[in-house]
Design a protein around this nucleic acid. Structure first.
Length: 520
RNA sequence: GGCGCUUUCGUCUAGCGGCUAGGACACAUGCCUCUCACGCAUGGAACACGAGUUCGAUUCUCGUAGGCGCUACCA
């Protein structure tokens, strides 16, 4: 019988969601949607020590921003709840007992201190078939002894009883069959005494079973414990409905060694979190892709291609396209270095393909941060008009202004001169040095005369007045003109810019340049 | 140390026994041009190594080396 595809993303609320987690969730999403299945959001908060307030809300908000939607789970509803593991204590207790009754697990009284002592005493100590009979557990004690200790309030854990000497095979969709001998596995703790909660291993298997999960798509760091999980499914007698596994390659640091981790924060020069995060304990703030000006679609697209590709040359694609093209079995096996420079390129692509009118909110903020909002009301109207013009201008096909921007914020240095006249000129600037010499002031004075006589200050009228003069005299006024209006070697066509600024402002700026650049 | 995974340009990758080893990012150069640049064009740049299997290996097998992960009463 074909089961409906059900996958889950199950983060631990120990802090902000990091970019590798985003990719794991994304792959789960793509897989679920492609098969018409469900994506479940489960919170694995079985480590009470590492719980961080606000993390859960942060994760939910992140996915909302990213456009990755869940079908059920914490905050999304569904009839397989509760979806927060801390609310499922009774369920785990019941299943731990099942294992105990079936002699698949046992009770151990060894304290953390005793275990540390053992580890110090014996090199490479491992709690397993070869050592468990020398430890303090229900395998070496009578039932009465065990009950007595429990009644006396001694703390205990429940460990899985791994039978040694057999090969456990994990079938992985990405890696094929991975075989490991059970003798190298240890009797992992399934139920902790410290907080009366199960460990990841037990909770994970019980929940995936009860939530009818069909495919477990998670990071490669889980591969070593996958055999344990297979053994647990067997111990429960659930092997027929055991999910299929897929272990994703890890995201690595762009330089240096190791995987990308939360602790990398901003140290590497780019965010590792989707949204800005304020740590409630340390008070530190970590930057986020959203706040950096990334478009969620761009980030998602970039991330999707780290470890998977459709097998052709297509790189820019929407979430819907990815759903169609995604193929778990075509994921790469080796870890991928996180090259955020390519992420910038993706943002550039998405920004360019977005109509400039959609940039308005970000552009507004940009002007604000640059003090444009503080202008008096009348001036504000002008700014509004200019802003609209800039955006129209930016949106024009083949327009130079549209280029060289990966983020809306890149726009400011490129369009600053629309709003603010140059207040000084850097004489060491290569462009200025090259285009402003002793004769330039004279040429600019002539230009001012000519422009003063243009009544309707349109591009065409300016051209009609300036071009013949330039041709007759052989003068080339444009670069110096640019120096005056922009203060640098950038910007649009001079006629266009002048028309935009208006006759008065244009002449004012040229005159200012003449005095500033020629008096010395 | 033990166990497992992995290895194509600097980076992300295509390739699934026979290819001038393809694309993208980044880099360099050129074109365009009143500037910066977008775009376009061009260029440099890779099959870790050693055995085997085979008529033939980037591709299959085994070693070696490198990388990565796990090795907690964390997930």
């Amino acid at each position: 019988m074909e089961r409906k595809v059900r996958v889950r993303f199950a983060p631990s609320p120990t802090g902000p969601l990091h970019i590798g987690g985003v990719r794991t969730a994304l792959y789960n999403y793509l897989f679920a949607k492609q098969h018409g299945g469900d994506l479940i959001f489960r919170i694995e908060d079985t480590d009470s020590n590492r719980f961080v307030p606000g993390a859960e809300e942060y994760i939910i908000e992140s996915f909302k921003w990213l456009g990755i939607n869940f079908d059920e789970g914490v905050s999304f509803g569904g009839d397989h709840g509760p979806y927060r593991q801390s609310e499922r204590k009774d369920i785990y207790k019941k299943y731990v007992q099942v294992l105990l009754d079936a002699d698949k697990a046992y009770i151990a009284f060894d304290t953390p201190e005793e275990l540390d002592a053992k580890r110090a005493e014996i090199e490479n100590f491992q709690y397993d078939a070869s050592t468990r009979l020398m430890m303090r557990n229900s395998l070496v004690m009578s039932k009465e002894e065990v009950d007595q200790l429990i009644n006396d309030g001694h703390q205990y854990v429940v460990r899985i009883k791994i039978e040694p000497g057999r090969d456990v095979v994990v079938h992985d969709i990405i890696r094929g069959d991975v075989s490991i001998n059970s003798s190298v596995l240890d009797d992992k703790v399934l139920y902790k005494s410290a907080d009366q909660l199960p460990t990841y291993h037990l909770a994970n298997i019980v929940d995936d079973h009860l939530m009818e999960v069909t495919h477990v798509i998670r990071g490669e760091e889980w591969l070593p414990s996958a055999p344990l999980h297979v053994l647990l499914y067997e111990a429960f007698g659930w092997q027929d409905t055991m999910p299929q596994f897929a272990h994703l390659p890890l995201l690595l640091k762009p330089v240096g060694n190791g995987k990308l981790s939360k602790r990398d924060g901003d140290k590497l020069g780019f965010p590792v979190f989707p949204l800005e995060w304020h740590d409630p304990k340390s008070g530190e703030t970590s930057s986020g892709y959203r706040e950096k000006g990334y478009l969620p679609e761009a980030l998602v697209n970039f991330l999707a291609l780290l470890g998977w590709n459709p097998g052709n040359d297509q790189e820019v694609m929407s979430l819907d396209e990815m759903v169609k093209l995604f193929d778990l079995s075509k994921c790469s096996k080796a870890g991928a270095r996180f090259d955020y420079v390519k992420g910038i390129w993706f943002n550039h692509q998405y920004l360019l393909n977005k109509p400039a009118k959609d940039w308005t909110p970000e552009f507004d903020a940009l002007l604000k941060t640059n003090g444009i909002e503080s202008t008096p009301e009348k001036e504000a109207q002008v700014v509004e008009m200019m802003k609209t013009k800039v955006i129209e201008y930016v949106d024009k096909e083949n327009n130079k202004k549209k280029r060289n921007i990966s983020f809306v914020s890149d726009l400011w240095p490129l369009c600053k001169f629309f709003f603010v006249a140059p207040d000084s000129f850097n004489k060491d600037d290569k462009f200025i040095r090259k285009n402003w010499n002793e004769e330039t002031a004279g040429m600019m004075r002539q230009l001012v005369d000519i422009l003063s006589n243009v009544d309707d200050f349109t591009i065409e009228n300016q051209k009609a007045a300036v071009d013949p003069w330039a041709e007759q005299t052989g003068l080339r006024p444009w670069n110096a003109w640019r120096v005056a209006l922009v203060g640098a070697g950038q910007g649009p066509d001079m006629y266009e810019l002048s028309a935009f600024l208006g006759k008065q402002e244009t002449i004012k700026r040229i005159n200012f340049a003449i005095t500033s650049l020629s008096c010395e």
